[in-house]
């Protein structure tokens, strides 16, 4: 298959994307959304689709280190990029600290929005967030219909406070 270098307009494109350390080289329709590429081509269905217009945040993944809505990106836009999805968080089958905190704080019910929250949280450095309002601003890019956000905030506060100040942090839970 000859590689399409995008140097002439085409409805089919060749892309190369690394997802969770695995390299994918595919010819895909130019219109294929990144969310569908991750789910249908890479077969990673932990990234959920909730609105397909960039509001609910369920489809959030990490693109070259930054959180982004995979429903509002074309797969071709991330050609050459490195993507991380929720399947990449756990190590050796163990939950990462944020996953563990969600578990311990009952911060998920149906679990559909959860991967999006986790990926946004994974993408940022707690040090960049001064207080609870900053945290709300970060998480307000995600809709959860089950928890009223109470236990999500609690879970995040438990991890971030530990990361910031071992003896009582600034994020109220």
């Amino acid at each position: 298959m000859e590689r399409q270098d995008h140097d002439s307009p085409s409805a089919q494109v060749d892309i190369e994307v690394t997802i969770n350390g695995e390299r994918f080289r595919n010819r895909v329709p130019a219109r294929l959304l990144l969310s569908d590429f991750i789910r249908d081509v890479a077969g990673l269905t932990g990234t959920h689709v909730g609105c397909e217009h960039g509001v609910c945040g369920a489809c959030t993944v990490i693109v070259d280190g930054d959180a982004a809505r995979s429903c509002s990106l074309l797969a071709v836009q991330v050609d050459g990029c490195t993507i991380r999805t929720v399947e990449d968080l756990a190590t050796d089958g163990g939950l990462c600290p944020m996953q563990q905190a969600f578990h311990e704080n009952l911060a998920l019910q149906c679990g559909f929005c959860t991967p999006g929250f986790l990926m946004t949280l994974e993408s940022v450095d707690p040090q960049d967030f001064a207080d609870a309002d900053d945290l709300f601003a970060l998480l307000s890019g995600h809709l959860c219909r089950c928890t009223g956000y109470q236990n999500i905030i609690k879970a995040v506060a438990s991890v971030w406070n530990e990361a910031i100040e071992p003896h009582g942090g600034r994020f109220q839970s």
Binding site: V86, Q99, H103, T114
Partner: peptide
């Protein structure tokens, strides 16, 4: 909850 692990790992199977 016993339901959490698969959901947190992105392994729960929804219809889609």
């Amino acid at each position: 909850r016993r339901e959490d692990r698969s959901a947190l790992l992105g392994q729960s199977q929804y219809v889609a």
